[in-house]
């Protein structure tokens, strides 16, 4: 499923919203999550999952083309932990 397919599906389930309006809302939804994360904030969507940042230590890497050593500085990466309800929905046999 792509972003535009998601927008179509959401619009089908909604009453009184045009596709364009739905698109703006879906876009705002993901933008808001992105903004929160970029401020170092955790995003908790119960039943779906949590997004938070993890810290990657600085490391030395090599440019695969030139073989030259480069320093990769410390950085934050997004980590998604699946929520209980979604995990159970994926694995009904484990309930």
């Amino acid at each position: 499923m792509t972003r535009s397919e998601l927008i179509e599906k959401v619009a089908e389930r909604l009453d009184g919203f045009t596709l364009k309006q739905t698109e703006i809302i879906v876009e705002t939804f993901f933008d808001s999550i992105k903004e929160a994360l970029s401020k170092g904030e955790k995003v908790e969507l119960r039943g779906f999952g949590n997004f938070r940042l993890k810290t990657r230590q600085p490391r030395k890497a090599r440019n695969p083309k030139t073989g030259e050593a480069v320093d990769v500085p410390e950085k934050r990466v997004v980590y998604f932990k699946t929520g209980k309800e979604l995990r159970e929905k994926l694995n009904p046999h484990l309930k």
């Binding site: 992105k34 970029s38 940042l53 993890k54 950085k75 934050r76 990466v77 997004v78 998604f80």
Partner: peptide, 16 residues
């Protein structure tokens, strides 16, 4: 979940 390049760049330098 695999973050897109745009999301990766947005959080790279965030304070944890």
């Amino acid at each position: 979940f695999k973050a897109s390049n745009i999301l990766k760049e947005a959080v790279e330098k965030a304070e944890s």
